[in-house]
Structure formats: structure tokens, C-alpha cells
Amino acid sequence: MQFKLIINGKTLKGEITLEAVDAAEAEKKFKQYANDNGIDGEWTYDDATKTFTVTE
């Protein structure tokens, strides 16, 4: 399945997509990506659109 991450950071904004088996795997990958890029914020997930959002 394809999942999307919307980044609303203080210095980094944008979207990325990835393939994952389920939402838990996608969340783990997205949070690792955010951590690697210094993004720390409030996370939400919309199951209907398979979209994660992180807002700093």
C-alpha cells in the first residue's frame, strides 16, 4: 500500500510517499525519516487517505 507524509516543519515543508505493508510500518519509516531530518512535532494519521501529517 502507498502512504503519504505531509511535513509542516519550521524549516522543512513538503510531502513524501512510500510503500509499506501497513500503517504501522509506514509510521515507523516516516518517523525515522523525520528523526533523520531533525523534524519533531505533533503527528496525526488519516486512515481514509493513508496520510500522516507532522507539524512542528
Rank of each mutant, 00 (worst) to 15 (best):
I7V: 09
A20M: 04
I6T: 07
Y45E: 01
L18S: 08
D40H: 14
E56C: 04
V54A: 03
L5T: 01
A24M: 09
E27H: 09
E56H: 12
I7F: 14
K10H: 11
D46I: 13
A34W: 04
N37R: 12
L18A: 12
K31P: 00
K28C: 04
G14R: 15
D47M: 11
F3M: 02
T44K: 11
T49N: 12
L5I: 03
G38W: 13
F30S: 03
E25F: 10
W43M: 05
A24S: 08
T51I: 08
K10Y: 03
I7Q: 02
D22N: 12
A26F: 00
A20V: 06
A26E: 00
A48F: 15
T44C: 06
E27L: 15
T49A: 07
K50A: 11
I6R: 12
A20L: 05
K29S: 07
K31S: 05
M1G: 12
T53L: 10
M1S: 06
T49G: 11
K28Y: 15
N35Q: 10
D22H: 14
L12K: 13
D36N: 08
K29R: 06
I6P: 00
L18Q: 08
T55M: 05
Q2W: 13
I6C: 04
T51F: 04
T49E: 07
A34G: 08
E27N: 06
A26K: 00
D40I: 05
A48N: 15
K28V: 15
A48Y: 14
G14F: 10
D36G: 08
E19H: 06
D47R: 03
K4M: 11
E15D: 11
E27Y: 15
Q2T: 11
N8P: 03
A34I: 06
I7T: 04
K4F: 06
A48V: 11
E19G: 07
E56L: 07
G38A: 13
D36C: 08
F3G: 00
D40F: 12
T17D: 11
E56D: 06
E42C: 06
V54I: 04
D46M: 08
D36A: 09
T53Q: 07
T44Y: 14
N37V: 06
E42R: 15
A24E: 13
T49S: 13
N37A: 12
Y33G: 02
K4Y: 06
V21F: 15
K28Q: 15
I16F: 08
N8F: 12
T55P: 01
Y33E: 02
M1E: 15
K13T: 09
T51H: 03
I39G: 01
V54K: 01
E15C: 07
T44Q: 13
K13Q: 09
G38L: 13
E25R: 03
Q32R: 12
E42L: 11
E25I: 14
A34M: 04
D40L: 10
W43E: 00
F30D: 00
E42M: 06
F3Y: 04
A20Y: 04
G14Q: 07
E27T: 14
